[in-house]
Design a protein around this nucleic acid. Structure first.
Lengths: 202, 202
DNA sequence: ATCACTAAGTTTATCGGTTGCGCTTTTTTA
DNA sequence: TAAAAAAGCGCAACCGATAAACTTAGTGAT
């Protein structure tokens, strides 16, 4: 499974060296005070090589691959216990992820602080996170027996993901998340269960 | 009230010349094919002057000041007819703005098409639009008798504004907006009127 | 073991947006 | 009218990002 030849191993190594050097330098001197040239030199590669490994640019140096977060999102919707609504399941997943982040390796708080205090990194992280919107919307649509491009599913997915950005930096982030998901849960249950699914008089 | 000295008049003139030249060139050759140097030269000013007038950069050249859209948003919430909910009022405002945009001066469709087909401009426009989030949240909070930093108000404001970006490019944009606002209306009415305001079991 | 193939990496050069600096010119104001 | 304020200028540089042509080093099949 993980049988990588020397080639792929070296490739992964340089990529890791770049990511490590970048994170270290960013933490030491601050994101803006470090140029891509500095990072490349610290990793002992050329600038072009850096961009070969991180075509999305400087911000991408900080974020490792996602892979399983999207799977976790759709699984949370698909495999939720009976009687639990979709928003409730998503709220639960976010809660778990949050408590998992508190632990993790040391230096992780510094990492989070760097992102929180650096607008380009915040923005990039948000975009990465929102990239799962379509997959989540599809999962929700399947679950509710709605077309994959239903605006309601799309909106619920988008709002649920965006909620974490919305409560960012709050001291009462957890209860704020609760309140936002209460709004989504109310709205969603009203759209799926009873009377008109889409009808709405203004 | 509008007594501008010669100085401010000239300043406004230069700014307008820059905006006009930029829009014209962008429409003629495409956004990416036009550099800020081209724009500056077409407006007969230096590049430095261009950035003095538009510190936000190239994208800002296309967007004129907003000023009254934010006022319209808070007014729609504050002065809405009795019996109408906040989401309904916002939905109505967006509907009016949309129908108003269809008319407007000639060349406006080209303007919209330019923005829609140019990712950086789309992104910038969205950010400008979302900038009214706090004012709108405050208006909603005042209306509902909630603290200004209530997560529910913040979320409703954010979601309502973000809805227009969410339905972008859809053929059924109007009905999609209806559906999204139905979700918000259901959720919001559930949070304000009856039982628990924030309580929510997961 | 060799040889052709492929992919990583390098060098160099360039492009476009953006900023800082020192300077001139115009307008306001004391 | 002198001085302060502000608009503008030209220049040079910085920075992120990309392109082209070339070298180096694993890979795999014969």
């Amino acid at each position: 499974m993980t049988e990588m030849g020397r080639r792929e191993r070296k490739k992964a190594a340089t990529r890791q060296a770049l990511a490590d050097a970048a994170l270290r330098l960013f933490l030491e001197r601050g994101y803006d005070a470090v140029g891509v040239r500095d990072v490349a030199e610290a990793a002992d590669v050329s600038v072009t090589t850096l961009f070969k490994h991180f075509p999305d640019g400087k911000e991408a140096l900080v974020f490792d691959e996602d892979t399983d977060r999207e799977a976790a999102l759709v699984a949370a919707v698909r495999d939720r216990p009976v009687g639990q609504t979709v928003p409730q399941a998503l709220r639960g997943l976010l809660h778990e992820e949050r408590s998992r982040q508190v632990r993790a390796d040391p230096g992780f708080p510094d990492f989070l602080h760097l992102i929180d205090t650096t607008p380009p990194l915040r923005e990039y992280g948000r975009r990465m996170w929102l990239r799962h919107e379509n997959a989540l919307a599809a999962a929700i649509g399947t679950d509710a027996g709605l077309p994959a491009d239903d605006p309601g599913c799309q909106a619920l997915a988008h709002f649920a993901l965006d909620a974490v950005a919305l409560v960012h930096g709050r001291p009462d982030a957890e209860t704020a998340l609760d309140r936002i998901f209460a709004l989504l849960d109310n709205g969603w249950s009203g759209m799926t269960s009873p009377g008109g699914a889409g009808g709405w008089e203004r």
